[in-house]
Nucleic acid binder design. Sequence first.
DNA 1: CAGTGGTCTAGACCACACT
DNA 2: GTGTGGTCTAGACCACTGC
Lengths: 270, 270
Amino acid sequence: MVSTANASNPAMPSMGASDAIAVQQTPVQTPAFSPLYQQIKVLLLQSLQSGEWKPSTAIPSEVELAARFKVSQGTVRKAIDELAAEHLLVRRQGKGTFVATHAEHHVQYRFLKLIPDNGNTNSEGPAQRRIIDCKRARASADVARALAIRAGDAVLQVRRVLSFSQVPTILEDLWLPAAPFKGLTAERLTHYDGPMYALFEKEFAVRMVRAEEEIRAVLPDAQQCELLQVGPHTPLLSVERIAYTYNDTPMEMRRGLYLTDRHHYRNALN
Amino acid sequence: MVSTANASNPAMPSMGASDAIAVQQTPVQTPAFSPLYQQIKVLLLQSLQSGEWKPSTAIPSEVELAARFKVSQGTVRKAIDELAAEHLLVRRQGKGTFVATHAEHHVQYRFLKLIPDNGNTNSEGPAQRRIIDCKRARASADVARALAIRAGDAVLQVRRVLSFSQVPTILEDLWLPAAPFKGLTAERLTHYDGPMYALFEKEFAVRMVRAEEEIRAVLPDAQQCELLQVGPHTPLLSVERIAYTYNDTPMEMRRGLYLTDRHHYRNALN
DNA sequence: CAGTGGTCTAGACCACACT
DNA sequence: GTGTGGTCTAGACCACTGC
């Protein structure tokens, strides 16, 4: 990367004292231009995606990046601001800017919105995790669509139960594309201490950046009843999640059944 | 407002050429200082809260505000940026900055996350609304806690059913503090065409700014079955919402039962 | 055309963390 | 003290809207 080539104005806009170098430019294209800081943002994103900067490490300082890209510090700053707002980077005053990670104890389970009814903190301590199953399989039509692969492609399928205070509360099935997760075993999942997404970062260089969930109310089938130790008329939350890495690439499909007797799914509307 | 008094450094930080005036300062207090743009933000917030600037109207331009507060345009800009990020203001290039509203057709139902399973747009058209009930009542302990009032205080209680494509899908009970909503009737609710929160803005000068929801899976009781026209074993989403105006003041408690046969609750995790 | 928000720069100084 | 992010300024120019 680093592209010592002048990063200014590949498209056209803004700025006063520029001597535009005009790179790229698809022959006949939409007007499509973007401000300088957006172009910087793309360059930073590439460094993240390529693994040049790894989770929890510091990226170069703003002044260094400004020099590298031949723009002012303010422009770099605005690019970093947006990446920080998207939780791809974390700023720490006096220390530097760091690549975000799922491995920090503070933000643990960033994507899990199920909270105990009383006292939203972890008065329960961490979840007890039990891996029921972890096997290779072929992607069904549903899974294939979610993961943007072809039906029949190899996937890893994991099933597990999470308990809080010894009460089985979450039953999860998840599907991963086999290729990027080659070597993932039930063994590894069982013995890893920490969020699953932290393991994905460390062992497979797959960082989950955002996700989308679809929630419904459902009743469990016989097998689900047994695994969650509930009766067949117990209403459950069905939470279907697709998690994405950089570039909006889906890397996980997950269906969770949540017992909401003593917990609830909390959501902030802004 | 306007406070022609110098808006600089009431607390202490930043800036070079300041001749700090040092107002406020509680005798023995936490260090507690804030950057200039945060102080500007508070001033803007006051103008919003006081009704000086009403929903969908334009606020003064950045240069005018900068002059008014005796700060640079960049500082005003950063304050506005944050308010825009919180959806209190909306920027429109070339036109101005506007007070956000629930009355725009684009962002209609900003807080309703229930989406048809196929095609996330409104291929269904708008919801059919039926007001079941609208009466004065006394706040129960639950409602009182949610609305930050005393148990027994007067509240308005509304019950309604929303249908999509003629299918009853949402049963909602909602509680409002009686005082700010004096004069609200079933009549008014029935005949108003548009989001309820838009009516609240127009008629009662109450603008909902954010909300929190707690979601659970439940089974309906007999009355709920009848209103939603479902069987007693139909699992439903229970969505409990508290909506807040400015200053984190709760102004509505709402419990919705969502039928998720043909719809789902969609949530983006970032 | 004038007015508004949007981008960019260059330089100054403050707050925080480490050494 | 040095280095990093955070705040603030002043001024220039660009992009969009509407008269």
